[in-house]
């Protein structure tokens, strides 16, 4: 008996109400939502396998995002342009992500049952190390080849670096315009490929192992599955996907806010996934896609709606933060109560 999940309905309702009051054009919103689907899909897809493997919401996708940013900075530093640069950023990011995913997975095997709070703290630790490398390291103990990246004091990367050499290369490839709505088909293909990849992984024996560990770790272990290794694999895949997602995200925006671009990417991705109807124990691609549409349309229209209803745009912004945190809080409480009920 599948329990009916009211979350998508709730978000749809909120979005519709906010949209109505925002007086924004449907065309504009539609285009914005498409952009956000492109930008955020892989980040949200990255959450699916850890949820399936019973590790809950993986807030440490933020580490994958930071790996992507590191990749971009390396390419800008070495001044590798064009498609080669994009590939270079992706590859170096993936390399870092695999290592980080392995470390995080190994650590999480030592805190079974408390993975979610651990991943939040890991995110903070990661952010600290990241800042140490890029704010302090570059220019001091890390040789900088491109001095334009540095702050005026000579050490540390600037707050914002431009991705001009990489803009509009893949972004607007195969662009199709239908009645004002812009559909970048190459990027759609990329997103579709990622979605298919995740689905395929789950249809392999490895996917069965993820499911088994997520369903009942004890029984999975007894039946001969190496649960520790399976969980590490889940984290590596998740971190790598998040890294790729952030590469796409940033090249779409066109610049990197070095110290803030990754912030809240974990919270928003989780909230989007939950908005699409996923739970702490079960997440599918369709939840991710639906969730991005619902969550981000709400995100786009609430500031203007707030302005129109209360003459205060800031209210809309605070409201959407509340929705993000609140939906995660409620999902956690309901899920844990449900788990306890079953015991």
């Amino acid at each position: 008996m599948r329990r009916f999940n009211p979350a998508p309905l709730f978000f749809a309702l909120l979005s519709i109400i906010a949209f109505y009051y925002s007086d924004m054009s449907a065309l504009f919103v539609a285009n914005e939502v498409i952009i956000r689907i492109i930008r955020n899909s892989l980040l949200v897809f990255a959450l699916i396998i850890p949820v399936t493997a019973g590790m809950g919401l993986n807030f440490s996708i933020i580490i994958g995002a930071m790996a992507a940013q590191a990749g971009w900075i390396f390419m800008l530093d070495l001044q590798v342009p064009g498609i080669l640069g994009i590939a270079g950023a992706a590859l170096s990011g993936i390399f870092i992500s695999v290592i980080c995913g392995y470390i995080i997975g190994s650590y999480l095997n030592r805190v079974k049952g408390r993975e979610m709070i651990a991943t939040i703290i890991i995110g903070i630790l990661g952010a600290g190390i990241y800042q140490f490398i890029f704010l302090v390291g570059y220019g001091t103990f890390i040789p900088a080849h491109n001095s334009e990246l540095l702050l005026s004091r000579g050490a540390g990367i600037r707050d914002m670096v431009d991705l001009a050499p990489y803009r509009n290369i893949i972004d607007r490839l195969w662009l199709v315009d239908i009645g004002g709505i812009q559909l970048p088909f190459f990027m759609f293909t990329v997103v579709a490929a990622a979605a298919i990849a995740v689905k395929l992984i789950l249809l392999t024996p490895a996917g069965q192992r993820f499911r088994a560990v997520g369903s009942d770790r004890g029984s999975a272990e007894l039946s001969g599955i190496n649960t520790d290794r399976t969980r590490i694999q889940a984290m590596i895949i998740s971190t790598v996907l998040a890294c790729l997602g952030q590469i796409i995200f940033l090249q779409n925006i066109g610049m990197v806010n070095v110290y803030t671009a990754h912030m809240n990417s974990d919270i928003f991705s989780c909230a989007a996934l939950l908005a699409g109807g996923a739970t702490i124990k079960e997440a599918k691609i369709r939840h991710a896609l639906l969730g991005i549409v619902l969550f981000h349309s709400l995100y786009i229209v609430t500031p203007q709606a707030g302005q129109n209803i209360f003459s205060n745009a800031v209210l809309g912004e605070y409201f959407r933060s509340f929705i993000a945190y609140g939906s995660i809080a409620i999902a956690l409480i309901i899920n844990i109560r449900h788990e306890r009920g079953k015991q």
Binding site: R114, I117, I120, F322, Y325, I333, I336, R337, R340
Partner: peptide, 21 residues
């Protein structure tokens, strides 16, 4: 009391939600 075993994460996000509201 209702979320025994995973208090930390539930408490974290409850705190976040209250601060944001």
């Amino acid at each position: 009391n209702r979320v025994k075993g995973r208090e930390e994460i539930a408490a974290t996000f409850t705190g976040f939600s209250i601060v944001s509201i």
